[in-house]
Design a protein around this nucleic acid. Structure first.
Lengths: 132, 132
DNA sequence: CCGTATCCACAAGGATACTG
DNA sequence: CAGTATCCTTGTGGATACGG
């Protein structure tokens, strides 16, 4: 049972820890919410279903690719439902699922905290940047 | 007044929207929380101050560089306080500030939701992956 | 209209070695 | 012990063009 260097042991521990982290539900959700356009998509869909083109307009900053990618991931996670209406031209609607709606209060909690504390954060940054 | 192509107009709109997004308090907070080690650091510090080495042990998956980086960002945002005790060897403690503590309920909201709904997410993923 | 495919830039993150 | 400095790999996101 061969002599492993301490470097090897550390590496193993790192990998194990990372595996655990990537499985942790909280981190999985934080990762998702941290993706660039996810929060905005949820906010847009909060008021009701939207067509793809509506979302594209609302998220003018997102590239086609990222908008589709974001929506696909949300669909895959069961947060959003995609409905295709086969007319000409095609019509695609996106809506929150019940699961997606259950996430809204959480997003709102973040929003509320953010609004209440941005000033403090900005003040802290200014103070920090001033002396460093 | 120069004739701008529609491509140019779109580009301007994109940039404007992106600027707005990056200023939005909610997105700023989600970005921060979405960073790889932030959630874990907050969780670790929740129970009380920790030395740098304790954090390094707890976050075995994070590289030195990322641990320090994460802590610096949190310090800059006023969420964590860094205290240096000039002994030999040096001792550095990290603790949540009141602002950092005020964020905990939000993180807990995410955690609770995540734990309650991971199964649904995983089920949705399996269903999605099965037919695509 | 709603996407996919391809290619590409840049930043995030990491390995390693070194310092007060 | 706690942190920098350096170099390198990867992944995220974007531009562009094309297809159903």
């Amino acid at each position: 049972m061969p002599t492993r260097t301490s470097a090897q042991r550390r590496e193993t521990a790192r990998d194990a820890h990372r595996a655990a982290v990537s499985l942790c539900p909280t981190n999985r959700v934080l990762d998702r919410l941290g993706e660039r356009w996810v929060g905005l998509v949820l906010k847009e869909l909060e008021a009701g279903p939207l067509r793809h083109s509506d979302l594209a307009r609302a998220l003018a900053g997102a590239s086609q690719k990222m908008l589709t990618h974001t929506l696909r991931e949300l669909e895959r996670d069961g947060l959003v439902r995609r409905t295709v209406t086969a007319s000409v031209p095609v019509r695609v609607d996106y809506a929150l699922t019940p699961l997606g709606e259950s996430l809204l209060p959480v997003v709102h909690a973040v929003t509320r905290w953010a609004q209440e504390h941005v000033q403090e954060i900005d003040a802290a940054r200014q103070a920090y940047d001033a002396e460093n």
